[in-house]
Design a protein around this nucleic acid. Structure first.
Lengths: 109, 109
DNA sequence: ATAGAAGTTCGATCTCTGTCAAATAAGACA
DNA sequence: TGTCTTATTTGACAGAGATCGAACTTCTAT
């Protein structure tokens, strides 16, 4: 059905996530690269998984997406065969103030 | 020789350390507990290794101290048979602004 | 000199996790 | 229906890292 897909983003409940989970999710070079590319998107823009360039195979990338999703770092939106990912900037910053920014700054290229 | 030991703290050059190293050093529950106990010390106070309580054996604790030291998180001072550890708060915050604080906040008990 | 205290290092497990290839699931489209 | 695209899942594997006990080093003290 060609229905609306009205911003139907799915994400885990950040209230249930503890800091160590997020910290460990962010402590991997590949995942950090994913986050960085999504952070590069303006505001609430999202990207299809396949459009994010990482130096691993598709299955490995999918594995990293799952970890980031379960850690509450990413939100998912499905459209057709693609799944669009979005960085949960604001929510993350409310729950863990300053964490994402300082991590991105510390590991900046 | 009973000489002065005038604040002879040893630590790696933080300029040579990259963010991922620090991030991974902080991404372990035991090490984070070490850091937290050292952060509890007022200002530049230090503690002997053995006085920091962690749920692992002495050798494992020593391993974690080494990782934290090599990541530039801790500085070491030797006195007698003891080795005093100090958290490099200010230096760390200058090199990686906000990182330590946000990590400690995010993983607070 | 002998013993004790504080840490480190070594060697051996054991678990975790990042990785890939192949198989699978689901949607789009001819 | 069949095929292509997109992404996930499964199974296997390898490397990294956390852990422990035992041996070793160094300083202190008796």
């Amino acid at each position: 059905m060609g229905h609306a897909t009205l911003e139907t983003f799915g994400g885990v409940d950040l209230g249930e996530i503890d800091g160590m989970t997020v910290l460990q999710a962010l402590s991997d070079p590949v995942r950090l690269e994913i986050v960085r590319q999504l952070a590069g998107c303006t505001g609430s823009t999202d990207m299809p998984c396949g459009q994010i360039e990482v130096p691993v195979t598709k299955s490995t990338a999918s594995h990293h997406f799952k970890i980031l999703y379960l850690a509450g770092v990413l939100a998912k939106r499905e459209q057709g065969t693609s799944k669009y990912m979005r960085l949960r900037r604001d929510e993350l910053d409310e729950r863990f103030p300053g964490l994402l920014d300082s991590v991105l700054r510390a590991t900046a290229v």
